[in-house]
Design a protein around this nucleic acid. Sequence first.
DNA 1: TATTGTTATACTCTATAACTATA
DNA 2: TATAGTTATAGAGTATAACAATA
Lengths: 175, 175
Amino acid sequence: MTTDASPHSPPPDTDPDADLRPLEIAGHRIDILDGAFSWFIRSLDSVVSRDLDARMGHLEVAKGKGKITALLLIDDYPGIRPSEIAEVLMRDRPTTGRIIDRMVQAGLVSRGVSAHDQRAQSLTITPAGHDLAEKVREIIRQQEAEFFDFIAPEDRAQFMRILRRTYMRMRSKWT
Amino acid sequence: MTTDASPHSPPPDTDPDADLRPLEIAGHRIDILDGAFSWFIRSLDSVVSRDLDARMGHLEVAKGKGKITALLLIDDYPGIRPSEIAEVLMRDRPTTGRIIDRMVQAGLVSRGVSAHDQRAQSLTITPAGHDLAEKVREIIRQQEAEFFDFIAPEDRAQFMRILRRTYMRMRSKWT
DNA sequence: TATTGTTATACTCTATAACTATA
DNA sequence: TATAGTTATAGAGTATAACAATA
C-alpha cells in the first residue's frame, strides 16, 4: 500500500478498524441506515451523478439517466431499436421514447423505419452525435480515473465484480 | 432482426467465468459502459429506488431521495437542525428545507427555534411521524432481506465494507 | 391479441441566485 | 462579515394510462 502524499490527503485511513465503526456524521450516528445496501447505493448515486453532470457541462446529454447510455448504444449499434435501448436502461418505452425525441431534435440521432418490421424504428447516429459520443466517452474515462481514485487498488477488481453481478441479478427482478 | 435465432439462455450462475465476460444485453455488448463504476452505481440506483418506491406505496415519504433519511434522523435525534440533515444528505439547504417543509405540512415533524441559536431550528418528530418512521424502518428491513437476497453470502460483508469506504471518501469530495 | 411506439397528464426533483434575520 | 434558513424561478425527470398502427 503506497502512501502517496496527495495534496488533499484524506483523514487517516490507517486505522484498520475504521471499516467496523458505525458511521458518524455531523456528530450523529446513522444507525438504521448504516447496514442498508439501498441507502449506500442511493447516496452514492447522488454524488456520482452530480459530479458527472458537472463534467458534462452543458452538453446535450447532461442530466438525468439514460441519455448517455442511449447515445453510446446508438453510436455502437447502428439500426438499434428503441425497445432494445429500453431494455438496457430498464425503463419503460414512453421514457425511452422521450430520451430519443430529444436527441433527434438536437440533431444527434436520426429515426428510420426498420426494414424487417414496419412498427419498429431503426436508429442511427449523425456526425454531430458521433462527435458527442466521443467526447462523452472521454469524460467518462476521466471521471473513472479522477473521481474514483479513492477506491483502493486492492478493492477495485472485487468492487467491480460484485457490482456487475449485482447488476445482472437485478435485471431478473426487473422483468 | 429476424435472425434472432440465437438462444436467449443467459449464462448459468454456475459458470465461474461469468464475472469476466463482457456484459451482453438485448444481444448487444455494452462495451464502454462495462467497466465504469459510475454506470453501475447509477443503474443500480434506478432499480433499487423503483423497488423502494413500490414498497413505500403511498406513504408520505415515498419517491425522491432524502425524505426517508430526514425522517429517521429527526426521529432518532430530537432537536436536530436542518443544516445537520443537509450534511448527511449531501444536499444544499434549499433542497433540504423543502423536504422538511413537506414533512411539517404533513404533520410528521414540527419546527421549533434552537435554544442556543436564534437563527437555527430545532426539529422534532410528532406521534404520526414516529409511527411512520417505524413503518419505514420495517420496509427497509424487508427490502434488504427480500430484494438483495441475490447477493452471495460470501460477498455481503465485502460489498458492504467497500460501499461504506466509498461513501466516506466521497464525502470529502463533496465539500 | 400482442407488440412497437406516441400522446396526455400530473407530479416530482434540481440548481441557482437573491433575500431576511441572527451571530 | 459569516451563517441559518427562505423565497423565487426555470428547467428536467418520472409514472401512468390511454392511444394508433402493425404483426
